[in-house]
Design a protein around this nucleic acid. Structure first.
Lengths: 332, 332
DNA sequence: CAACCGGTGGCAACCGTTTGCCGTGTGCTG
DNA sequence: CAGCACACGGCAAACGGTTGCCACCGGTTG
């Protein structure tokens, strides 16, 4: 039951090990008939190359790691799925790492894995920018849903999306909006706030920011209460989880959504279409983001590019029942 | 920037490579002062053992693979999270594989990874039982949410849970229940149906089965229509996704839940508490299942056990608004 | 016809660890 | 004080591939 090696194949085929090796990893380097013969023998023996032996000398592991800030967040599911499928399609393996919202764990795990993977997908990284740059100097890195000058990145478009969202609220008649911010170290949080504030200024709305809040349902209570103190008629939450928490708290406090307050989120997670009222949110093809990120990583291994690509995947504003005309009962 | 090896450390510390190696992987084998010295030098040089070189000779990769039938199903998130955390805690790496509900892909991926991982967690495997047994002969395997004689397994309790669920429906006054079954190759589907049928017989309810249905929201439409044709006043869906799809379809058809029909699901996914009406479901600590599965796998590597443990994690029936007294409007 | 050349295959040196075995120095026993 | 067990370190052979380099061979070329 001992698995067969390149030596077994070489012996059985009457060639040198180098020929067997080349028949697999560099087919053009051996004559056609020899190659076929070797492959046939290998098949018969059930030979499977040992990835570790291979990695040891070639320094390529055919594995990529995806580090997510919080594996519990449903938003990442699609991202992970897209990445996994793209990796698999190229015969790569996806390693999943949960940073548990901790920059320290994130770094620790990256460190631990450097030798075992060919590159990293850093989704919603909580690292300071300079640390990312430094990291990228030593490793192949693609940052996801964050932009870092000089680094390859894939983000779901959100600046224009925020503008649309604020525009949507403005057109409904809102004149004051509050952004319930995500974690301080979240690039997205900062970026969204900038976009929202800019759009609000353009459209003549008053914009405020409260927070930071953890991007979880549980934090929604505090976020809702904070939103109410601002007197704003519309609240944009950092993500759908937070928004759903806000909806809950508002319902508990007897605040009508959207009659009294409109609520919107980001990510368009599965649950956004199920909560009550259903949630207006900025969605997009998260799976595509994951897919693209892996693709960029794989490409960068083939031909190390001088310029790091910065891809933007389009988003779409999904209007649902949680936003409406202020003061008017829903459904009108 | 070339990463340092055991050889660099050995030279810098003035010892042999074997001593350095042992200082890390077999600390008792070297004298205390030598060990400290070596470790200190290693730290200074930023030495990190190369996992591939290590794996090559030791045949231990410190990596486990988790194969899930469908990575899109939110039910797996908790499972994955629990597994990831437990693996990380022991310095193991979790590789994620999506079988996309295809036994072929499942097998293919397992085959591809055999050399790169120490063992497999097979969650909701769609393989025929004999294939699993054969697989387990060649690899370390723990099956999750499935039981296979002779194989290590972790399942969330569901027999008693199904009994409770049927009991709950009976106590509400239902006399006929329909099970909307999951995929034909799903062990869980078969097992749940057996439990439901058994409980129904005991309690004097009529039980029918419809399906199989894909365990997705999209299949809920067909499942709901099928359920209505049976005339049963209560439907138990194979999982929450299907149940949510059923709720949607029933709402579209103007069927009141639970006044006209009660609906229940399995898994207690996040969305079950958000949909309308909120969903009665059999939940449990899925993260614990993942954690336990990894733990069993890791233990089995330390001391190969003669008897394969079969762990059952308790479940709990979560009563929400989707089940009620037949014929009576909700909230009474 | 000699020189040359591209296409193939083999040799052997790595890649970075682990580990069986051996040699040495030390402390203890009788 | 001889004899011995033992703790500790070193040597070197794996583990299973990849790859630079060389040798060979038949066919072109001048």
């Amino acid at each position: 039951m001992k698995s067969s090696t390149i030596y077994d194949v070489a012996q059985a085929a009457g060639v040198a090990t180098s020929t067997v090796s080349r028949a697999f990893s560099n087919p053009d380097r051996v004559g056609a008939v020899t190659r076929e013969h070797v492959l046939e023998v290998a098949r018969r023996l059930g030979y499977q190359p040992n990835p570790h032996a291979r990695a040891l000398v070639s320094r390529r592991t055919r594995t990529v790691a995806m580090v997510v800030s919080d594996i519990t967040n449903p938003h990442f599911f699609e991202l992970i799925r897209g990445a996994e499928m793209r990796a698999k399609a190229s015969g790569y393996t996806l390693v999943l790492v949960n940073a548990e919202e901790s920059p320290r764990i994130e770094l620790e795990q990256i460190h631990r894995l450097t030798r075992s993977v060919d590159g990293f997908l850093l989704a919603a990284s909580r690292q300071p920018e300079e640390d990312l740059v430094q990291l990228a100097a030593g490793h192949r890195v693609v940052v996801v849903n964050r932009r870092v000058p000089g680094l390859a990145s894939v983000v779901l478009e959100h600046a224009e999306g925020c503008r649309q969202m604020v525009g949507h609220l403005a057109s409904l008649g809102h004149s004051s909006v509050v952004y319930l911010a995500g974690p301080r170290s979240s690039w997205m949080a900062a970026s969204r706030w900038a976009a929202i504030r800019g759009a609000a200024a353009e459209l003549g709305l008053r914009a405020q920011r409260m927070g930071p809040f953890a991007p979880t349902v549980a934090s929604g209570g505090a976020a809702a209460d904070a939103a109410l103190t601002t007197g704003a008629t519309a609240a944009i939450a950092h993500n759908d989880l937070l928004a759903i928490g806000v909806l809950r708290r508002l319902a508990d406090r007897g605040v009508q959504v959207p009659a009294d307050v409109s609520v919107a989120g980001f990510d368009d997670i599965f649950a956004a279409d199920l909560c009550t009222p259903t949630l207006t949110t900025l969605g997009g093809a998260h799976a595509d983001v994951g897919r693209a990120a892996v693709e960029i990583l794989l490409n960068s291994m083939e031909q190390p590019r001088d310029h790091a690509p910065e891809l933007v995947v389009p988003s779409e504003l999904i209007l649902r029942r949680s936003t409406g005309v202020p003061g008017r009962p829903p459904g009108q």
